[in-house]
Computed example of a mutant assay.
Amino acid sequence: MGFQQMVMRSIEEGIHQNDQRLELATFGMGCFWGPEARFGSMPGVVRTCVGFTGGTTPTPTYRQMGDHTETVHISFDPRVISYEAILREFWQNHYPNRDNYKGRQYISLVHYHTEQQRKTIENIRKEMETQLREPIETEIAPFGEFTLAEERHQKYYLKRYPKALEQLAELFPEKELLTDSTFAARLNGFVKGYGTKDSVREDIAQWRIGTVEKKWLTDLFLKLKW
């Protein structure tokens, strides 16, 4: 294992060392590439990945999705960002009542992971209905099975920058490490246009890692070639 890879692994482990405090959120809001980038850019969101939920078709894939829905699955730190804030981001950034021209693939869907989340969803939905001045048709359902989408769909926008990926390859030699990475989630959001260099730097400055690690990661971010 190279030195830089060891440093990055130490940073990610430091970020995730209190994973038991993290909470989950799962949404369907159209094609899952954009939502993963959007949520991945938000301070307090620790992990993002995309996949399929809600259907009965066994082992769904992107080409054989059956009755499943494209969803983004998020781990977040409630000490930094609230579930209410994430829900508002969800409803404010897609139209929940559009025609579902591809069956269930692109429906508006929110899965709740706890009874408290279900209550919060109902409260925020009423708030959003007042703003929209129409009923919200988002499907609300308990979280069940989540099938991870193929690797090419994870951090989709980041993977459109081969020069940056080449630089990151030493840090994330295994593809699942990139999928699980908080740093990669921020980069994926950044290249999609969610945030600026300054906002990413400010976010890293708040991460629960050492000062030396923060500087190393910030320098790495600024040196990436796109």
Rank of each mutant, 00 (worst) to 15 (best):
E23I: 00
Q131H: 10
L158M: 06
D198T: 12
S10L: 11
P162E: 05
E145T: 10
S10I: 03
H68E: 14
H73M: 06
L220V: 13
Y112Q: 12
R63K: 14
G55A: 11
E150W: 07
A205K: 15
P96N: 06
E36S: 13
F183V: 01
F90P: 05
I121N: 11
V46A: 09
I136L: 07
R118D: 03
M1H: 10
G210N: 11
E12G: 03
M65Q: 11
K214N: 01
E127H: 02
P173C: 04
Q154E: 14
Q206W: 03
E70A: 06
D77L: 07
I204F: 08
Y161G: 00
H73A: 00
I15P: 03
E151T: 13
L165G: 07
Q64E: 15
Q116F: 08
E134G: 05
A149D: 02
A185G: 04
A37E: 14
G14N: 09
I81Q: 12
G30Y: 02
L24M: 13
F76S: 02
Q206I: 00
D203R: 01
R21M: 09
G193M: 08
E174Q: 09
Q131C: 12
Y95N: 14
G55K: 10
F76L: 01
G103Q: 08
S199P: 08
F172Q: 02
F76H: 03
T138H: 08
H94Y: 09
M8V: 07
G44T: 08
L165D: 03
Q5I: 02
H73D: 09
F190M: 04
R208I: 12
R118A: 10
T56Q: 14
F3R: 14
E150Y: 05
E176N: 10
G34L: 11
R63V: 00
P35V: 04
T120A: 05
E139D: 05
L187A: 02
Y194R: 04
D219Q: 09
H111C: 15
A184S: 09
W216N: 04
N18K: 07
E89F: 03
G210W: 03
T48A: 03
K119A: 11
P60M: 09
A85M: 10
S75A: 06
P135Q: 12
T211Y: 06
E134I: 06
G66R: 12
T138M: 10
R47E: 12
D180C: 04
M8K: 02
K215I: 11
E139R: 14
N93C: 06
P35Q: 08
G55F: 04
R133K: 15
Q5V: 01
Y101H: 15
I11F: 02
R152P: 00
Y161A: 00
G195R: 13
W207C: 04
D77Q: 08
Q5A: 08
H111S: 15
T71A: 15
D19A: 14
D99R: 15
F143C: 13
P162V: 04
G66D: 11
P58Y: 05
G14V: 12
M128S: 01
